[in-house]
Each structure stands twice: as C-alpha cells, then as structure tokens.
Deep mutational scan, measured.
Amino acid sequence: VTVHVNRYTYHFDNPEEAEKFAREMAKRLNMTVEIHGNTLKVE
C-alpha cells in the first residue's frame, strides 16, 4: 500500500496501518484522504 503526502511517498505492508497513517497526516495538515485502490493520497 502506498501513501502519498505532498511530494513524499510512504510504503506500508499493512493496509490498516497505511490508512491510520494517512488519516493522521491528513488531520495534522488539515487535508483529506483519497483512496484509489492500493494508493492513498493526502490532498
């Protein structure tokens, strides 16, 4: 599972951890999480 935050890319083996990380980053940056299959984008 890949998480994109701005120009950074993070890889996770565990989808739940990836989503938790993405949501935490989105909250911190006041952004939203978009899910595209195995890719989560924080925008």
Rank of each mutant, 00 (worst) to 15 (best):
V1I: 12
V1R: 05
T2I: 12
T2M: 07
T2D: 10
T2K: 08
V3F: 00
V3W: 00
V3K: 01
V3T: 01
H4N: 05
H4E: 10
H4Q: 12
H4V: 14
H4K: 11
H4L: 12
H4R: 10
V5D: 03
V5H: 04
V5T: 03
V5E: 02
V5Q: 02
V5L: 09
V5F: 10
V5N: 03
V5S: 02
N6C: 15
N6F: 11
N6Y: 12
R7N: 15
R7H: 14
R7L: 09
Y8M: 13
Y8L: 13
Y8D: 13
Y8N: 12
Y8W: 13
Y8C: 15
Y8A: 12
Y8F: 13
Y8Q: 14
Y8R: 14
T9N: 06
T9F: 11
T9E: 11
T9H: 12
T9P: 06
T9C: 13
T9L: 13
T9G: 04
T9A: 10
T9I: 15
Y10E: 02
Y10A: 02
Y10I: 06
Y10S: 01
H11V: 10
H11D: 04
H11M: 07
F12I: 00
F12T: 00
D13R: 05
D13I: 08
D13A: 10
D13F: 07
N14C: 11
N14Y: 05
N14I: 08
N14H: 06
P15G: 08
P15Y: 15
P15I: 15
P15R: 14
E16F: 11
E16V: 12
E16C: 10
E17G: 03
E17T: 08
E17C: 12
E17Q: 09
E17N: 06
E17P: 02
A18T: 00
A18K: 00
A18M: 01
A18G: 11
A18C: 02
E19Y: 15
E19I: 13
E19W: 15
E19F: 14
K20A: 12
K20T: 10
K20Y: 09
K20E: 11
F21Y: 03
F21R: 00
F21A: 02
F21M: 02
A22Y: 02
A22N: 00
A22C: 06
A22H: 01
R23E: 09
R23L: 09
R23H: 12
R23G: 05
R23V: 09
R23Y: 14
R23N: 12
E24F: 09
M25Y: 04
M25W: 12
M25F: 04
M25P: 00
M25N: 02
M25A: 07
A26H: 02
A26W: 01
A26K: 03
A26F: 02
K27F: 06
K27L: 11
K27W: 04
K27E: 10
K27T: 09
K27A: 12
R28T: 06
R28P: 01
R28N: 08
R28E: 07
L29Y: 13
L29T: 05
L29A: 04
N30I: 03
N30E: 05
N30V: 03
M31Q: 04
M31I: 07
M31N: 03
M31F: 06
M31C: 12
T32C: 11
T32Y: 08
T32D: 05
T32F: 08
T32E: 06
T32A: 08
V33I: 09
V33Y: 04
E34Q: 14
E34M: 13
E34S: 15
I35N: 05
I35A: 09
I35M: 09
I35Y: 13
I35T: 07
H36Q: 11
H36P: 01
H36S: 11
H36E: 10
H36F: 12
H36D: 12
H36W: 09
G37K: 07
G37C: 07
G37H: 05
G37N: 06
G37F: 06
G37M: 04
N38S: 07
N38D: 09
N38P: 07
N38F: 02
N38K: 06
N38A: 05
T39K: 09
T39R: 09
T39L: 11
T39A: 10
T39Q: 12
T39W: 08
L40M: 13
L40P: 04
L40E: 05
L40D: 05
L40T: 06
L40C: 07
K41A: 09
K41Y: 15
K41W: 15
K41L: 14
K41E: 08
V42M: 03
V42Y: 03
E43C: 15
E43G: 15
E43Q: 14
E43M: 15
E43W: 11
E43N: 12
E43T: 15
